[in-house]
Amino acid sequence: MITTSVAEAADCLKKGQVLAYPTEAVWGLGCDPFNEKAFREILRLKQRPIEKGVILLAANVAQVEHLLTGLSPEIKEEVIASWSRRSPAERATTWLLPAGGHIPSWIKGSHSKVAVRVTTHSLCAALCHAFNGFIVSTSANPAGLEPARSLQEASQYFANELNYLNGDLGLSQEPSKIIDAETGEIIRA
């Protein structure tokens, strides 16, 4: 299915289906992060090992507030500022945060932390709102190939094996940078 309806796309996620959708810089694959069957379908489509983990995408800080509680007030402020003060053309930031016991092991992979990004991309934010929570966000491409940058490229990779939310990419030229919130280590520059 290809749709421009955020409600239809969110419904796909709620039904345990995989969805391709445009993000800030590339197309992503998403699912309900608490649905292991849907998550394993993403791994199959991407030919990606579970150990790598994936990013969780949220519409606002409230959707991930529980993941920020273990941070110092200064670091928490820095994380929130990076999400809320970003211009649309600026590269997004994904933070590695303490996962706690409520994030499924398959999301974290072999890591003790979880990668989280609050988006300023209006379509992604609308999708997370309609889904009523954060969603999986991993680039729409089989392992070793370039991430899709259009509906056409995503559908060339995955044909009718999943659903598509058609829309425009954001203005960023690069996928998000990834930083460990506790150590400050840059994982992806």
Rank of each mutant, 00 (worst) to 15 (best):
E182Y: 00
A154M: 13
Q63F: 01
G133S: 10
A181Q: 11
A148V: 10
K52A: 14
L57I: 14
I178T: 11
T23M: 10
E146I: 15
G28N: 06
A115S: 09
L45C: 06
L45R: 06
V6H: 02
L127T: 07
E78Y: 00
C124R: 08
H102Y: 03
I187S: 04
L169N: 09
W95Y: 09
N160L: 13
I80G: 00
R86A: 12
L96V: 05
L96N: 01
N163S: 15
S72M: 01
S176L: 13
S122C: 14
G109W: 05
E51F: 12
G133I: 11
V79I: 05
D180Q: 08
V136M: 03
A125N: 12
R44M: 10
L13S: 04
A189H: 12
R149H: 13
K177M: 14
T94E: 03
F39R: 01
V136Y: 02
G109V: 09
L162Y: 08
G28D: 02
F134R: 08
L162S: 11
S72Q: 08
K37F: 05
G144Y: 09
K177F: 01
E90P: 02
E146P: 15
R188D: 10
L57C: 09
D32A: 01
K52D: 14
S172T: 12
L127I: 12
V136T: 12
E8I: 11
P22V: 05
R117M: 04
F158Q: 13
Y21M: 00
A10Y: 00
H66S: 13
V79F: 02
C31E: 07
G170Y: 11
E41C: 10
S110W: 10
A38L: 00
Q156H: 15
T3E: 07
P73L: 06
N141A: 03
S137N: 03
Y157H: 15
A189F: 10
K52F: 11
P104T: 11
Q17G: 11
S82I: 06
Y164M: 13
G170C: 12
L71F: 06
A62K: 14
V64D: 01
Y157R: 11
A10H: 05
A25V: 05
S150R: 12
K14H: 14
V136R: 03
L165R: 08
G101V: 04
I187W: 01
P98N: 04
L145H: 14
I55Q: 07
S5F: 05
A58F: 04
V64A: 04
P33V: 04
V79M: 03
S139K: 00
Y157I: 11
L97P: 04
Q47P: 07
I2K: 13
L123T: 07
F131E: 11
K14F: 09
K177A: 14
A125E: 12
I187Y: 07
N166Y: 13
T94N: 05
V26M: 02
I75C: 07
E8G: 00
L56F: 09
F134S: 12
I103L: 07
G53M: 09
V61D: 03
K14W: 08
V26T: 07
T69H: 10
P104R: 08
Q63T: 03
R91I: 04
A92D: 04
G100H: 06
N163Y: 15
H66V: 03
A115K: 01
V18I: 07
